[in-house]
Design a protein around this nucleic acid. Structure first.
Lengths: 193, 193
DNA sequence: GTCTATAACGGGATAGAC
DNA sequence: GTCTATCCCGTTATAGAC
């Protein structure tokens, strides 16, 4: 059973995805979570506190669903797993879309909210390492620095595509196609060093 | 000599780069531009009007400086021109940084402000076409659809890197190195079809 | 821990003079 | 076209009861 503060954070992620960080109203958050505004301030101190905890919350959640696997299905090849992990973030399902939208919002908010930067940088680093590890399984002989650089590029590209998708200029399946093309080009480059 | 409304838009670009769209205060904008708030509403109707015109303004300006060339210097090779054009947007000069920051802000604001979407999609299209044309000069035999897809990826990657740079998680020169690596990988892929 | 009520303030937008 | 003055609403945050 979800605790009160988890319940608030779930609502916050939902609302940030729907209205943006800029459009997040504490009163509306209270209504969405079914609690009072006072309680929100009690748990999270202030608006920034809400944002920081929401960032942590969506990271934990993403960690869960990108790692999850169907136990009955045959184990995927490294390449499949890499593609699946990255493409997942452009999938139009409730939970994932919400996470992507909230992540993008928090990322761009961080440009002007120093309080978010450190958490964001940390989360990005974890993500880059994870993707670098997946790349390493596809290209076992590639040097670690190349794997890291490639992971940074692919994740940054994913963020850029995601932003265009969410701002309405790019269809989701087009974004996925483009991302697949980049994976192909990058893996080829990794294999040629 | 700059007209009054140009003067206001210059100040708006400066301020959006410094404080973000969310942090843009009309009163502060008036002070920065050296005019009254009333005049701003007279010229741009409302807050959204300011944002839309600022978007147009920074696009025109970017068009100017990405096209500009030293008339005495020897004409650059297509590859050089491609790299120069893209890397320019990650350069830490006053005007460019301002443009990049404002562009990123307007892009992410558009996710939740439909009024900005159309203008933004149009500007993105122009930019993608421009980059596709540059790519076409480097790889004259590549099919147009491949050139477009590559241009979409490189510009989206640039936006993603720019966002990380501005949100403090990535040094500018690291961003440039990563972008150069992507150009290399993409051009190789374009050459192999 | 949780609520209600409200203080306190910031900032968008407009009216009307010049 | 441009300014000054100001209205008024929405929002954050806190006080205090339960």
């Amino acid at each position: 059973m979800a605790s009160r503060s988890t319940q608030i954070l779930e609502a916050a992620a939902r609302l940030i995805a729907r209205r943006g960080v800029r459009g997040l109203r504490v009163e509306e958050l209270a209504a969405e979570a079914g609690v009072s505004t006072g309680l929100i301030y009690y748990h999270f101190k202030d608006r920034t506190g809400i944002l920081r905890h929401t960032l942590e919350f969506i990271n934990d959640r993403a960690e869960r669903y990108t790692t999850a696997r169907d136990p009955d299905a045959p184990p995927p090849s490294p390449r499949e797993e890499l593609e699946r992990t990255l493409l997942l973030e452009l999938q139009d399902t409730e939970e994932v879309r919400e996470n992507s939208a909230a992540w993008g919002e928090l990322r761009s908010s961080a440009v002007f909210e120093p309080a978010l930067r450190e958490d964001l940088a940390g989360a990005t680093l974890v993500w880059v390492r994870e993707v670098a590890a997946l790349l390493g399984r596809v290209r076992p002989t590639a040097p670690a620095t190349d794997l890291t650089a490639t992971a940074e590029r692919l994740t940054a590209l994913l963020e850029g595509l995601s932003m265009r998708w969410l701002s309405g200029g790019l269809a989701a399946d087009r974004a996925r196609t483009l991302l697949l093309g980049a994976i192909e080009a990058e893996l080829t480059a990794l294999g040629r060093r």
